[in-house]
Design a protein around this nucleic acid. Structure first.
Lengths: 159, 159
DNA sequence: GTGTCTGCAAAACATTTGCAAATGC
DNA sequence: GCATTTGCAAATGTTTTGCAGACAC
């Protein structure tokens, strides 16, 4: 079942399948590891290390920051989770198959909104054709000016 | 010679014109401020705070980190300098009119390369038409897989 | 039983803040 | 002369590292 960039398929694996994948790679399923995965699983969107460590989403126990960092790194290496940046500052974490949305971020007022994926398709194709790179626009937001700030910028400028 | 989407044209000014702009805004031209600007001016590309503070590029004196941060923030607010991120980690700083290149960054091996601006034009237009945002792809790199890592990814995957 | 993982404490970085002294205008 | 700006020192916030004990398998 292909999860990758192309497919519209939304595989949304259950928690057990993630846990199984962890075990399949030879990693141990500890309470801390399970709590991290559960938090990512129940979260509405990408979450911070802080949120994961404090057991947001009702994880039974709390997990030490250092262990959260370690686990996220390990799980990211396995391709099970990803981190994304929604603006400046520390990243947020999510299950790998959920990191599919591209965002616009206004550099002046900080406003943020998701982008209709089809808008990026032409450039993604052009980049692939010209450079061979498979571009994902999901990791960092696309920075620019929102309509209002763009307007103000054009008026306000002295000359 | 069109440099950008719209905005006030600010073309490769000499050092003095930047200094004049600073004074014109009512800011004082101190030794530290001048050193920061000079470093940005002579640098081959975007530079780190560390590099600026240590007087890379032959600035006569060294400038305290805190002062560099303060100056960069002030100058960015005036629109004279910008910071960009070329990968993960702390940003790098450059004169505003020089922050025009878009980069591809491989999330697996870290390879980086500039993008031919025309490749992004279609999506920039589509985004403007659909959302009103003026997208700049220069602030964060576009993350993805370089040709080689993309190939390995496709082969290596277990299933 | 053994090697992995955890929590805790401390270190390493990047950045911000507070403030008295220095200095551009 | 006076407000702005500086350097220094300390605080903050995030992430990494070291390590003895706990625990999954």
């Amino acid at each position: 079942m292909p999860l990758a960039h192309s497919g519209p398929i939304l595989a949304a694996p259950d928690l057990d399948s993630v846990v199984r994948a962890v075990r399949a790679r030879g990693l141990r399923v500890t309470a801390a590891r399970r709590a991290v995965i559960e938090t990512l699983f129940v979260a509405a969107g990408p979450v911070s290390v802080e949120e994961i460590a404090s057991g947001l989403g009702g994880a039974r126990s709390t997990v030490d920051d250092a262990s959260v960092y370690g686990n996220l790194e390990t799980l990211e290496e396995l391709g099970l989770v990803r981190h994304v940046h929604l603006g400046h500052g520390p990243g947020k974490w999510t299950l790998a198959d959920r990191a599919r949305r591209e965002y616009l971020h206004c550099e002046r007022c900080g406003a943020s909104r998701a982008v209709e994926p089809s808008l990026l398709a032409p450039s993604r194709e052009a980049i692939r054709a010209a450079t061979g790179y498979e571009a994902r626009f999901t990791h960092f937001p696309i920075v620019g000016l929102c309509p209002q700030c763009a307007r103000e910028g054009r008026e306000g400028e002295p000359g």
